[in-house]
Write a protein that binds this DNA or RNA. Structure first.
Length: 601
RNA sequence: GAUCUCGUAGCUCAAUUGGAUAGAGCAACUGCCUUCUAAGCAGUAGGUUGUGGGUUCGAUUCCCGCCGGGAUCACCA
């Protein structure tokens, strides 16, 4: 049941009959009436005044009269300047409420919630995509939370979505940590070092850089130029040699590689678990980096690519405002984009009917993905336009940019531990729990800490660069995850009191709604539209802000109304049902953000 | 140098994709717990939307210039 659709049809009838204007109902723009004015939906009439040849006020007046006279849908209207504010019959709001409260699938099942049939598209979301040479940091956290949430939102909106990860597990940077461990590690393992595997490997990556710099420094002292020093440093040679061995499949090197990578995966696994993200399939770059060469070779014949004298293969993208781009080196080896060409082809081959491949990758790679898409356009792949780069902004710190060299990177594991600890301290200070060390309490601390972190990150429009202030992220008041979680727990508490006083599912009749009650019903009614907007824009932020609005609106209602009153059973029954539905909407919205809401806190 | 992108209250973010008097939270100040969870609610204060033009009934939103931040432009990934 969507009121807007019917009203649009009525308005287009009004335009036709009053002014003989042909206006398709789907083009009519209806917006929610601002709360300073009376009404539910507002039509902006300026666009019609040219043809109506009347003032905006008179035009609005005439359309309003037409609508009220026409049907029982609109009960009244008022005109402010060129804005026609329409009031929908209270009974219809109430009927809607009764319908969704008796069966919440009317709200959450996309097939039922939308009047138009939703199509079930087959989509793939690639996110996370870490390197195996260092642990995850704050930038990865935004990536993971976004990728997971976007996937959940797309699923909830009726799409078939597979979440995939592409792990960058090979290359010279991986060899650096391997070499450092081999030379200086003395057989250290995560067990012996009592360290998460990804952190241990990261330690050797940093160590490599340190030793390497030391070599350069001493070479410079001996009077070499920077360029020469760079070339002559022994570690540089050794690491190149290791990469050659790896590519040649040298058993010892491969074994070391496998061993250290397995440490990293165990570490990542833990972090992923804490973040609550998951994947349907994991791709490894070591298995995909050779893909794409074939595409380059074949398309040479097609004439899309061209070969330079030195044997390297290029594509000319200057006609679409991009540059010439290498897709295969002169020695026949792949560059970064060759591999992405291969994996994209592979994924569309493996998944017939795949409509969209969404890459959750930071906006520093905008150019790369423009090129990738353009290459496939030129190759004439029908799915080329289905490649979509969900380009999110960088995360800044109050101290500025995160720079690994300056050690200002915020480590994901440390961040999680700190924020959960903070939640524990605050919860204990509140003194509302019975047992602070139970498993349930531990889970609560985790859910609250992660709720704060996730909400803080996801409430910001993905496209925008954001500032991560650690002090504010653990804030629990105001526009925060814990505020919404608190509201949910509060509702649950009221519901259990209601059950004691009124029993299960008490009956209620049609009644006059207060403005706060109606405001809540209208917000609930907005859930499907919000979800759809979040899915279309790939924006969890819309869902986050919606959840906040609902929680805020409920608290307002809660403050002004007694929900459970033994002497007012009818009223209580209605308000309990409204509260219950509100909690369901909050829970569902938050779960799309990957945030759990507690029953008590 | 070229291309892209961002600039909204002291701070962090919104603004239904061109609509009404630009909204929230934090920080500051003031009230409200004998009641269903005060991690709450209500109020005060805070704005020339970087800047100058243009487009139109109407611009934070679209176009152009300028100022300021950021990113990219590798036979790195």
């Amino acid at each position: 049941m969507r009121f807007e659709k019917e009203i649009r049809i009525l308005i287009s009838e009004a335009l036709k009959s009053l002014y003989d204007i042909e206006y398709s109902s789907s083009d009519i723009l209806l917006q929610e009436t601002k709360k300073e004015f009376v009404g539910d939906l507002t039509l902006v009439v300026f666009p019609f005044t040219k043809q109506s040849k009347k003032s905006p006020e008179l035009t609005a007046e005439a359309i309003g009269k037409f609508l009220v006279g026409k049907q029982s849908l609109i009960s009244g209207f008022n005109v402010v300047k060129g804005f026609l504010n329409l009031e929908i019959q209270d009974k219809l709001w109430f009927d809607y409420f009764k319908k969704v409260s008796s069966d919440s699938s009317e709200l959450f099942d996309p097939a039922k919630a939308y009047s138009d049939k939703v199509r079930s598209g087959k989509l793939m979301v690639e996110y996370s995509s870490p390197n195996t040479n260092k642990p995850l940091h704050l930038g990865h956290v935004r990536n993971n939370l976004l990728g997971y949430s976007v996937s959940r939102i797309l699923r909830a909106a009726g799409n078939e979505v597979s979440m995939v990860n592409l792990i960058n597990d090979r290359g010279v940077h991986i060899c650096k940590s391997m070499l450092a461990w081999q030379k200086f590690g003395n057989g250290e393992t995560p067990q012996s070092a009592k360290m998460k595997g990804d952190h241990l490997v990261g330690k050797y990556y940093v160590l490599f850089d340190k030793k390497y710099k030391a070599q350069i420094a001493s070479l410079l002292e001996r009077g070499l130029s920077e360029e020469e020093a760079d070339k002559q440093a022994p570690l540089q040679h050794e690491v190149q040699e290791m990469l050659r061995k790896w590519e040649a499949g040298d058993p010892e090197t491969i074994e070391l590689w496998k061993r250290m990578n397995s440490w990293v995966y165990a570490g990542f696994e833990e972090t992923y678990k804490a973040l609550g993200v998951e994947f349907d399939k994991i791709y490894y770059e070591s298995e995909t980096y050779l893909l794409g060469k074939e595409i380059a070779a074949k398309s040479l014949e097609q004439g899309v690519f061209y070969k330079k004298e030195d044997g390297s293969i290029w594509i000319d993208l200057t006609d679409v405002g991009l540059d010439n781009k290498v897709v295969l080196r002169a020695d026949g080896t792949s560059v970064y984009i060759t591999q992405d060409m291969g994996t994209a082809q592979l994924r569309f081959d493996e998944n017939p009917g795949l409509e969209k491949l969404i890459y959750v990758v930071g906006n520093e790679q905008d150019y790369h993905f423009k090129v990738l898409k353009e290459i496939f356009r030129k190759l004439g792949r029908p799915w080329a336009d289905g490649l979509y780069h969900l380009s999110y902004g960088m995360v800044d710190l109050p101290s500025g940019k995160m720079k690994s060299r300056e050690g200002t990177v915020v480590d994901a594991d440390e961040l999680i531990a700190e924020i959960v600890e903070q939640a524990e301290m605050t919860t204990k200070a509140m003194g509302k729990l019975d047992d602070y060390d139970s498993e349930e309490a531990r889970k609560l601390y985790h859910d609250l800490g992660m709720g704060a972190l996730k909400y803080f990150i996801l409430k910001v429009d993905p496209k925008k660069r954001m500032l991560f202030n650690p002090a504010e992220s653990i804030d629990l008041n105001g526009n925060t995850g814990p505020f919404i979680q608190y509201t949910h727990a509060r509702i649950k508490s009221v519901l259990s009191k209601g059950k004691k006083v009124l029993g299960e599912n008490p009956e209620f009749q049609d009644r006059k709604m207060s403005t706060e009650e109606k405001a809540l019903i209208k917000l609930i009614y907005n859930y499907p539209d919000t979800l759809q907007a979040a899915a279309e824009n790939l924006s969890p932020a819309l869902m986050a802000n919606y959840a906040y609005d609902v929680a805020k609106s409920f608290n307002h209602f809660y403050h002004d109304h007694v929900i459970v009153d033994e002497n007012e059973k009818e009223t209580s029954a209605f308000r309990l049902r409204l509260s219950e539905l509100t909690s369901a909407v909050i829970k569902q919205s938050m779960s799309l953000l990957g945030i759990a809401v507690p029953e008590r806190m």
